[in-house]
Structure formats: structure tokens, C-alpha cells
Computed example of a mutant assay.
Amino acid sequence: MAKAVQIRDVPDDVHAVLARAAQAQGLSLTKYVLRELEHLARRPQIVRDNAATVRRTQQRVQGEADRETILAVLHEGRGE
């Protein structure tokens, strides 16, 4: 079951930025903030998944593969 979250003391400038961003995407402020919270909640898992991918890649190449090398190979594979 979904839960309610209430956030107090949001600074006026932060509220205004969020409201403009929501409007620009055709969303209500509530739906926009919910989407952003969902993304934020998933971020640690994304970071763990990325770290696991780096470790697997390093094992496959049997050596160190730094971030730049991995990104270069990804971009090359995508034709970028």
C-alpha cells in the first residue's frame, strides 16, 4: 500500500524550481516529486549494479579497466 510523505519548510526558491520543472514536463508537482523520489530511491541500486559491472569487466579482461576505458568501449559499441 502506498504511503504519504509530507515535507515541511521547503524553501520558496526550491518550491518554485520544482513547480516550474513539473509544469515544463506537464506533470503536477506531486507526480513530479514522486517520480524524482523514486529515481533517488533507486540510485544506490544503480550504483551497486554499475560497480558490479566494472568488477566483472575487470575480471574478464584479467586486469584493471578504469572508468574511462569502460566508458570508451561502451560508447564505441554504441557507435557514438
Rank of each mutant, 00 (worst) to 15 (best):
Q62S: 04
A24D: 08
V5P: 00
A24I: 06
E76S: 09
L71T: 02
E38P: 01
D49Q: 15
R67W: 12
H15V: 09
A51S: 15
L71N: 01
S28W: 12
A22D: 11
A41N: 13
V33A: 04
T69G: 01
A41V: 13
A19L: 13
R48W: 13
R55P: 00
A24Y: 10
I7P: 02
V5W: 06
L71G: 02
K31I: 04
G79L: 11
V54L: 07
A41M: 14
T57W: 01
Q62P: 02
D66G: 00
L34Q: 10
A65L: 05
A72V: 02
G63E: 03
E80Q: 13
V61T: 06
Q6Y: 09
A72I: 01
L34R: 13
V33W: 01
A22N: 10
K3P: 07
H75V: 15
V47L: 15
A4L: 06
R43G: 14
L40M: 12
R56C: 11
E68T: 06
G63K: 01
G63D: 00
N50S: 14
R60P: 00
H39E: 13
A21P: 01
R8D: 02
A65P: 00
V14N: 08
R20G: 12
P44N: 05
L71K: 04
G26Q: 08
I70H: 00
D12F: 09
L37Y: 08
T30M: 05
R43E: 15
R60Q: 06
G79C: 11
H15N: 10
Q45F: 08
V10T: 09
L74G: 01
V54N: 05
G77Q: 06
A19Q: 13
R55Y: 05
R43A: 15
L27C: 11
Q58L: 09
V33Y: 02
G77T: 00
L37K: 07
E38M: 04
R20T: 09
R48K: 13
V61A: 04
Q59M: 08
K31A: 12
V10M: 10
K3N: 07
R48H: 13
T53C: 11
V54P: 00
V10S: 08
